[in-house]
């Protein structure tokens, strides 16, 4: 857990952004618990609440990268805990596939992360965000960022 480099004013384009898809019943609640417990994590993450991670289409992931997101987190109920019985089975399959697909495309697969976070795992949520933020920082901004088109289009 490195400290946030607030002193130096970075170029906005260098700054990373993370998008998190959180399922309403477990991971969104886990994030709520992280808040209630005042667990601190870096403010580079914005979240989208969905009822179930089974609804997170591959299109959303591609769209996020298209829009210049540097890392996408999908967090849902542990297998067996799904409020909708098996919605997260689809998530498990889809995300495993998508990570490998990103690798084929030439996008680091570490930019997509799947985590199971229960409503009681506030600490886990916070540490996942800390860790993921560090990871994405280390990878740097996404090679797909529009302002870096020239890199992609050589």
């Amino acid at each position: 857990m490195n400290k946030e480099g607030t002193a130096e004013k970075k170029d906005e384009r260098e700054e990373i952004k993370i998008l998190a898809f959180l399922c309403n019943w477990c991971s969104y609640a886990g994030a709520d618990l992280a808040g209630v417990s005042r667990l601190q994590y870096p403010a580079k993450v914005l979240d989208v609440r969905v009822m179930c991670t089974g609804t997170v289409s591959p299109y959303f992931i591609i769209k996020a990268f298209q829009e210049g997101i540097d890392g996408v987190l999908v967090a849902g109920c542990h297998i067996g805990d799904c409020h909708y019985l098996k919605g997260n089975y689809m998530t498990a399959k889809r995300m495993r596939f998508l990570k490998e697909a990103l690798n084929v495309f030439g996008i680091e697969k570490e930019r997509l992360r799947l985590e199971w976070v229960s409503a009681a795992e506030g600490e886990k949520f916070a540490s996942v965000i800390r860790d993921f933020t560090e990871q994405i920082k280390a990878l740097g901004p996404s090679p797909l960022r529009k302002d870096r088109e020239e890199v992609a289009k050589v």
Binding site: P58, Y59, I62, K63, F65, Q66, F97, A101, F105, L144
Partner: peptide, 30 residues
């Protein structure tokens, strides 16, 4: 077709910017 969904692929943009269009189609083909 998702390739003609303006939310996913910018209409009229040629060539289409990555990762939309071709990677989208590729995912559907898997």
């Amino acid at each position: 077709c998702s390739l003609e969904n303006p939310g996913l692929v910018v209409p009229g943009e040629v060539p289409p910017t990555l990762p939309a269009f071709h990677f989208l189609r590729a995912l559907d083909m898997a």
